[in-house]
């Protein structure tokens, strides 16, 4: 009962997978969700709140657009007979501090074609990212910080449980 919002999302997933959209389905999903949340409690380290839904929504839009755009770029490289790539491992210094936001940023970087999160510095000062092809390391860094990290930082607040 401690996380009604997560629990409701789990109930919705249940309804989606189960083809049922009645109150009864929701209640079954919610009950199963409580069970799942109970089992997973030990993994929870912070409370996540979306403080600026508008920024979060815009971030999702920007992200989806970047995924499509970058997919086309990678497709171009694959089709080019010379495979013109200059890969690089770059460090992205982190302003984000929380598990949730860092994980989200890392996954967004990986899902955007052309960049892939390899590791995080042990002291969490930077993410290490492999670029498929880049001539301008600074531009990649700046773009990730501007398009993904800053909106994440603005939209989401985490606090310890």
């Amino acid at each position: 009962m401690r996380y009604p919002a997560y629990n409701a999302v789990l109930a919705l997933v249940w309804m989606a997978l189960n083809h049922g959209f009645t109150i009864g389905d929701f209640l079954i999903g919610y009950t199963l969700g409580m069970l799942i949340l109970y089992v997973h409690q030990a993994f929870w380290s912070e409370r996540v709140r979306i403080v600026r839904p508008g920024t979060a929504l815009r971030l999702m839009g920007v992200f989806l657009w970047e995924v499509v755009k970058a997919n086309v770029q990678v497709a171009r490289i694959v089709l080019d007979p010379r495979v013109p790539i200059t890969p690089a491992f770059i460090a992205i210094p982190l302003t984000l501090k929380d598990d949730f936001t860092i994980t989200t940023l890392a996954n967004m970087i990986t899902l955007t074609p052309g960049t892939l999160t390899v590791d995080i510095a042990k002291d969490r000062s930077a993410l290490y990212v492999h670029c498929l092809s880049t001539d301008d390391v600074e531009a990649v860094r700046a773009q990730i910080k501007r398009d993904f990290e800053r909106p994440l930082d603005e939209a989401i607040r985490c606090s310890p449980l």
């Binding site: 409690q41 030990a42 993994f43 929870w44 380290s45 912070e46 790539i85 200059t86 890969p87 690089a88 491992f89 770059i90 460090a91 598990d99 390899v118 590791d119 510095a121 042990k122 002291d123 969490r124 000062s125 930077a126 290490y128 390391v137 310890p160 449980l161």
Partner: peptide, 26 residues
């Protein structure tokens, strides 16, 4: 090893900084 076209590598071979071990569980 990465391919030889990989000219830039900002990733340290040795781990950087102290491991904070992640946050303790809940």
């Amino acid at each position: 090893a990465p391919c030889e076209e990989t000219r830039i590598d900002e990733m340290p071979t040795e781990p950087v900084g102290e491991d904070d071990g992640g946050h303790p569980a809940g």
